[in-house]
Design a protein around this nucleic acid. Structure first.
Lengths: 375, 375
DNA sequence: TATATTACTGACATCGTTGTCGACAACGAT
DNA sequence: ATCGTTGTCGACAACGATGTCAGTAATATA
C-alpha cells in the first residue's frame, strides 16, 4: 500500500519534468536571461545529487564525503547559486531581520543612533528594515503591520517620547508584537528601554558652570512635550538646588522646537528678563548656536560676560565661535546596546524558557569643555 | 484512476490532522502563547472555508459572496491574522523590498538622501533594507550577497565615488544583480545614475562672488579622490575662466577630508599664500565653518575683507557668525528620484519588454545668499 | 562468515502562501 | 427537461528551502 502511494506521488511529481521538454542546461540559460536564480534543485541536478545533499553542503551540516562536497561546490560556483533566504526563513521560522522605526535621522542624534543599530544588527547576523516616521507622534500602525507581516524578529523603537505618543504601549497592541526595545524614554514597567541619562547630562553641564563661578544660570529648554527636554530641565533644577541657588522662573525660557531660531529668540528673552545673567544652559547644540548668534548680534562677549553650554556635541560644536562646551551622548552605543538587548530577548523567547525580565539601561553622557564656558 | 489518486492524496494529507489530536481551538491558544501567528489555514478552519477563499478575501480578488466574505473577515479579525509576506514573496516571486547601501549617514547630506529614499520606497510599496559601510571604499561584497539572498528587487548605491571604488562596475558582478541605481557619481555607459550637479553648484557660488565684486577668489577643495570634490573644483575653474580670471594654483588649497579642521588649516594657508585674497569658496559647509573659525582667530572681517561661501546648506549654516552663504542640494529629491527610476527599471524588467535604457539624471542645486558673502 | 555499526545520501513532507483548474449550484433560455 | 451561463468555491501543485527518517554501502565486530 505504502509503495503504491509513493509510486503515485512520484508519478504526479514527474509531470512537472515531462511538461518541461527543455534539457536542464537550456532551462538554466533561460533562467539566467530572465534574471532568475539557480535553485537547490538546479545545483542538485548538475551535481547529480539530491537537494538535501546540496543543502547540507551550503549549511556545513551533517557529514558529507569530500568527493561529493567538491562536486556540489563546483556546481554551486558554476551556477552562482545563492540560497533564497525567503524560503529558508519560511521553513526555519526565523527571518533574521529586525525592524527600526525612527524619526529625524536627518538630525545628528538620531542618525548616529541608527548607525549604531545597523552595526550591531549586522554583527549579530540580522538584516535591518528601516522605517521612518515624519512626525514623532505620527501613525505607526501601518509600519507595525508591515513589520509583522514581514515577520521581523524584533523591533527597535527609535522615536523620542513626545506628548502621548507612547500611550499605546498600555494597550494590548504590544502583545501582538515581537520583542521591542524602546529608546530614549521614561522607564515603564514591563518594557525594555535604553536611554541616555539626560538629567545627569544637564546636571553635569550646570555643575560645570557653577565651578566656573557662574551664579545666574539660565536655561533655554527644548519643547516640554518631549521627555528629553523635561529631563534636561530637571537636571538644571537639581544642580541649582544642590548648590543652594534658586531655580527662578525668570531664568527659564521654553522653546517650542529644538531649532537655532528658538535659541536666538530664547537668548534675547533671557537677556531682557535677567540683564546680568552670566551663563546659559541651552538644551541642545542648535539652540546654543542660536544663542551664540544673539550674543554676536548684541555684542556680548562669550565666555567673559556670558558662558554657554549646549547638549549633543554636534560635529560643528568644536568650530563655532567660540567653540562650544557641550554634553556628549554616546549615541552609537545607545543603538548597539539596544540591539544587543533585543537579541537577548529574541534568543530567550526562542528557548521557551521563562521570559526575560525587561531591561532598563541608562547611558551616562560626558561633558566636553570648550571655550564657550571657560575663560 | 484519477479519483483514486485524489483519494489517496487526501488520505495522506489527513495524516497530519490525525496526528494532531488537539481540537482546532486549543491549537490556536497554544499558538498564541508561543507567539506564533495565525495562518490562512487557521482562518479557513474557523470560517469553515478553504484557504484559497481566505486568500481571495485578503487580496480582494475573485468573486466572493458577501456572506462568506463577512464570515472570513470575522475570522481574520478574531485571530488577528497577518499574511506572511515571506511565503507570499516566495510564491509570487516578488519580495517588494529594496536595498540601500549607504555611507556616512551620520553626516547631513547622506542622511537626507536616505530620508528621500525611504519616503519614496514606502510610497511605492517597498520595504527597505538598510546597509551601511564604514568606508566609502570598503568591501561591499558581503552586503551584496545578503541583498541577493534576500531577493531584493533593486539596489540603491548611495556611496560617493571615491578613488577606484566604482571599478567593480566594469566587471561581470553587475550582471548578477537586480537593477541598481547609483548616486553621486560620474556618468558611465550602461548604468543608471542620479547626481547633483556639483560643478554647476560651485560655478553658481563663484559667479555670485564675482557679482559681489570679488576678484581674488580662492578655493579650499575637498579630498580630490572624491568625484564630487573634483567637480566642485572644476566649477570654480570654469567660473573664473569665463570671467577672464586666472585660476592660479596659489589660490587653491587641497584638504584631505571634508572636516572643519581642514577648513581652519586651509584658510590659514590661503591667507599666507595670498594675503590680499578677498573671497573663498569652501567645498562644503564644514570646511567653510573651519575657515570662518580662522577668520575669527585672526581678526579678519567677514564679509567686508573676505567673503566666504560653502556648499550643502547644513541646518547650522543660517546661524553661524556671520550666517553662511552656501549651495543647497535637493538631497531628499535625489533619493526620491533614484527610487522612482529604480522602480521603473524593476517594472520594465518584469514586463519582459526590451530592457530600459539606463537613465542619467542631474539635479540642479541652488544658491542661498546670506551675510558671509554680501555686505 | 554473519552481523552490528558507521558514514553518507535521498525521499518525502513541510513552512504559508497563490495560481490553475475544475466542481457545483442556481439561473434563465431553449 | 436539457443546456449553457454565471457566480462561488475548493483541491492541488508550486515557490525554494530544511528536518525527519529511512536506506545503502562500507567498515568494524563477533
Amino acid at each position: 500500500m505504502k509503495e503504491m502511494i509513493i509510486g503515485l506521488f512520484s508519478l504526479v511529481q514527474n509531470k512537472r519534468l515531462t511538461m518541461n521538454s527543455d534539457p536542464p542546461k537550456k532551462q538554466l540559460i533561460r533562467k539566467l536571461n530572465n534574471h532568475l536564480h539557480a535553485t537547490l534543485r538546479d545545483v542538485a541536478n548538475l551535481a547529480g545529487v539530491s537537494t538535501k545533499t546540496v543543502s547540507r553542503v551550503v549549511n556545513h551540516q551533517g557529514e558529507i564525503s569530500e568527493a561529493t562536497r567538491l562536486r556540489v561546490q563546483a556546481a554551486i560556483d558554476q551556477l552562482e547559486y545563492r540560497p533564497n533566504v525567503l524560503a529558508r526563513s519560511l521553513i526555519r521560522q526565523r527571518s533574521n531581520t529586525l525592524g527600526v522605526i525612527a524619526w529625524g535621522i536627518d538630525y545628528f542624534g538620531p542618525s548616529r543612533t541608527v548607525v549604531g543599530i545597523e552595526q550591531e544588527a549586522n554583527e549579530l547576523g540580522y538584516s535591518l528594515f528601516l522605517n521612518l516616521m515624519s512626525h514623532p507622534d505620527g501613525d505607526h500602525e501601518p509600519i507595525l503591520d508591515t513589520l509583522i507581516s514581514r515577520r521581523v524578529e524584533g523591533i527597535i523603537w527609535a522615536i523620542p517620547e513626545v506628548g502621548g505618543n507612547r500611550d499605546w504601549i498600555q494597550t494590548s497592541r504590544l502583545d501582538q508584537l515581537p520583542p521591542v526595545v524602546f529608546l530614549s524614554m521614561e522607564s515603564r514597567p514591563g518594557i525594555s528601554v535604553v536611554s541616555v541619562d539626560n538629567r545627569n547630562g544637564a546636571k553635569q553641564a550646570v555643575q560645570h558652570l557653577l565651578e566656573q563661578g557662574r551664579r545666574k544660570i539660565g536655561i533655554i529648554t527644548g519643547p516640554m512635550t518631549w521627555w528629553e527636554a523635561r529631563e534636561r530641565y530637571a537636571g538644571w533644577q537639581e544642580a541649582l538646588g544642590e548648590a543652594g541657588l534658586e531655580a527662578s522662573l525668570s531664568l527659564v525660557v521654553n522653546s517650542d522646537d529644538w531649532s537655532a531660531v528658538n535659541g536666538e529668540r530664547g537668548m534675547r528673552t533671557l537677556l531682557a528678563q535677567v540683564p546680568d545673567i552670566d551663563a546659559v544652559f541651552a538644551s541642545n547644540d542648535q539652540i546654543a548656536l542660536g544663542a551664540l548668534s544673539t550674543t554676536h548680534q548684541l555684542g556680548r562677549c562669550v565666555p567673559q560676560e556670558l558662558a554657554i553650554v549646549g547638549f549633543d556635541n554636534i560635529p560643528e560644536a568644536a568650530f563655532l565661535w567660540p567653540p562650544l562646551t557641550t554634553i556628549y551622548q554616546h549615541l552609537v552605543d545607545l543603538g548597539r546596546v539596544a540591539v544587543r538587548n533585543l537579541h537577548e530577548m529574541i534568543v530567550s523567547r526562542q528557548s521557551q524558557s521563562e521570559p526575560l525580565p525587561p531591561s532598563f539601561t541608562m547611558l551616562k553622557p560626558e561633558l566636553v569643555v570648550r571655550a564657550s564656558s571657560s575663560i
